[in-house]
């Protein structure tokens, strides 16, 4: 087992954001956490990378307990993350941002730089552009490329589809598959459940700080409960990302992508009572 989260509780002040989450990730897998806004997905990732302290439970990485390891050391241990909102350093160029990804590492990084530019030719074209002036899709590519620069054993992705047009989402997901094929384990958090379930091997459904369900991703795609709640099955209620309204393309997959603000109400309702503070 590469990454094991055992019965983890996390609090923001007195509010419980995670109420005993258990997630396992095998080496070589793509695992996804899906769920509505405030379900605890981002908190789970932040806890794994050490940005949030846990109140109880354990995190094991490569069999080693890293629950108390400071965040900056977890990078060297092999945990790379493309954070929520992408976290691009706005005043640094594309190349400087990528070099930050290799900050903790020693030795030559030119090979890794070349590999990132090969995965994302777009970034190679914009080497010297300031990160803050790039489009959302380019920033997402930069965030993923930067995380790869640390040569992670597991790559944590927080909402890579957020605010992107459907075509761009498809492109990013294809690259995530490619990264996984090259040997990096991936744990991806998504509100865009349809896409995430098609990408992943296994999935966990989170609701208000708990794991509601866990199963192979293909099974969840057919699960009536999951379809109703997260895939816009039938009623058209979408667990969408609330990103930009650029999903005018109403093709088959668009239901999960499109989310008029009002439609998400069904999913959001239980969330606001219990964990309003998940900064999602």
């Amino acid at each position: 087992m590469l990454l094991e989260i055992r019965d983890v509780h996390v609090h923001y002040g007195k509010i419980a954001a995670l109420k005993g989450i258990t997630v396992e990730v095998e080496e070589g897998e793509i695992v996804t956490l899906i769920g509505a806004n405030g379900a605890g997905k981002t908190t789970t990732l932040k806890t794994i990378s050490g940005l949030r302290p846990l109140s109880s439970g354990r995190i094991l990485f490569n069999g080693q307990d890293i629950s108390r390891m400071p965040g900056h050391k977890r990078v060297l241990a092999g945990i790379g993350q493309a954070p929520e909102g992408r976290g691009i350093f706005p005043g640094m160029t594309v190349t400087e941002n990528l070099h930050m990804g290799a900050y903790a590492r020693k030795g030559d990084v030119s090979k890794d730089l070349a590999e990132v530019f090969e995965l994302f030719p777009r970034l190679a074209e914009r080497k010297n552009q300031a990160g803050g002036t790039m489009s959302g899709g380019e920033q997402q590519m930069l965030a993923i490329g930067r995380a790869l620069m640390s040569r992670p054993k597991v790559l944590l992705l927080d909402e890579p589809s957020m605010g992107l047009a459907p075509m761009l989402i498809q492109q990013i997901f294809t690259i995530i598959e490619e990264i996984n094929r090259r040997g990096t384990t991936v744990l991806v958090v998504e509100q865009n459940a349809q896409q995430a379930l098609q990408l992943a091997h296994r999935a966990y459904v989170l609701e208000t700080g708990r794991v509601l369900k866990s199963a192979p991703a293909s099974e969840l795609l057919d699960d009536p409960e999951v379809r109703a709640a997260y895939l816009g099955g039938g009623a058209g209620a979408a667990g969408g990302s609330g990103g930009s309204g650029d999903s005018g393309d109403s093709g088959g997959k668009a239901a999960a992508v499109a989310s008029a603000p009002g439609e998400a109400a069904v999913v959001d309702e239980p969330v606001q009572k219990t964990a309003p503070d998940d900064r999602d």
Partner: peptide, 12 residues
């Protein structure tokens, strides 16, 4: 520029 992301880069 972004303290939280800096930690994710391995900055102490």
């Amino acid at each position: 520029q972004d303290p939280e992301t800096a930690v994710l880069m391995g900055v102490n």
